[in-house]
């Protein structure tokens, strides 16, 4: 009998152990509260695995996890955050084979394409991890004021950020959306619809690195099930949305307006475009911060 998740592996008459793809919430791999699953197929249309179809309550639990982790993560030293993020690159490198195979199987990439996508994903995560302790110095400012005050502006984490990542680029797109969120101390709730098995494998990388539980939540399921809750949930502070602007994004903006939530809509380009350096953007960090200006008296 062959392994449905890994058809190339020789089974030699034994029953292989198939993986249960769970979601990643509060540092734990969990099943859905509602128990629903979605059938996933590989690029040839063969059965690959069942993945969790997250419910609204799962999303609520994820936001609770993210909120709980926020103080600890945003309060960490920026340098330490960068070290934790760097560890993700180490783990990704050590799991190259897994991700290359996954990208070929799930997204139907050639071996070369898969390698390239993985290279970009690692390099991009590395780039953002470097920004953890540099963003404040580069983007913060000392402001000239006409009164005897030392006036300066610094970025702070905006809070719990929901990410609806690219549907076209399963790894580079996910990394490009997630890294700028966590780099500045936010916690993230990611809702993945396309290639959920790959996202869960990425969650395993997060779990194996030194991220405190709850900084990254990865839910798998259908965006349409969760969009209303993402938009209306009062404890979500910002939304990073990738897709083709239309009814979905308009609804999201309407729902989010009730709490004046930061909603950033991004067009989801072709898969190849995600590999370009232009998708490695400092302004995506900028969108996930709150600016704080302090007036400190001087010369008294």
């Amino acid at each position: 009998m062959s392994d449905p998740q890994n058809p190339e592996s020789p089974s030699q008459g034994r029953q292989p152990v198939a993986k249960t793809y769970k979601m990643f919430v509060g540092g734990q791999f969990v099943r859905s509260e509602g128990g629903k699953v979605l059938r996933q197929e590989n690029s040839q249309g063969e059965f690959l695995a069942n993945t969790v179809r997250a419910s609204r309550k799962d999303l609520r639990d994820a936001v609770v996890g993210a909120r709980k982790a926020l103080g600890g993560w945003s309060g960490r030293g920026a340098f330490q955050r960068s070290q934790v993020m760097y560890r993700v690159c180490e783990v990704l490198e050590s799991r190259r084979e897994l991700f290359e195979q996954s990208l070929q199987r799930v997204a139907g990439m050639s071996r070369e394409q898969a390698q390239q996508e993985l290279d970009v994903a690692i390099d991009r995560w590395f780039w953002y991890s470097g920004w953890c302790d540099k963003f404040a110095q580069v983007s913060g400012s000392v402001n000239p004021v006409a009164t005897p005050f030392f006036n300066f502006t610094l970025p702070e984490a905006v809070g719990v950020v929901a990410l609806l990542p690219s549907a076209r680029s399963p790894l580079a797109g996910l990394v490009s959306g997630l890294a700028p969120i966590v780099a500045v101390g936010n916690t993230a709730v990611v809702v993945v619809e396309q290639a959920p098995t790959l996202a869960v494998e990425f969650a395993e990388v997060i779990a194996a690195s030194d991220f405190p539980g709850g900084v990254v939540q990865i839910l798998t399921g259908q965006r349409k099930d969760l969009l209303e809750t993402v938009g209306s949930h009062a404890d979500v502070d910002a939304i990073q949305w990738f897709g083709s602007p239309g009814q979905e994004s308009a609804n999201l903006e309407t729902l989010a307006s009730d709490r004046v939530k930061r909603v950033h809509l991004h067009r989801d380009p072709e898969p190849e475009a995600w590999l370009e350096d232009s998708m490695q953007r400092l302004d995506w960090i900028d969108q996930c911060v709150e600016w704080k200006t302090a007036w400190h008296p001087r010369g008294i």
Binding site: R60, V63, R67, T229, S232, H233, A234, D235, D258, R259
Partner: peptide, 14 residues
């Protein structure tokens, strides 16, 4: 309570 009244999940900030 706030969730039931407002029809959406609430926040401690509220």
């Amino acid at each position: 309570w706030d969730r039931a009244a407002a029809g959406r999940y609430s926040s401690s900030n509220l």
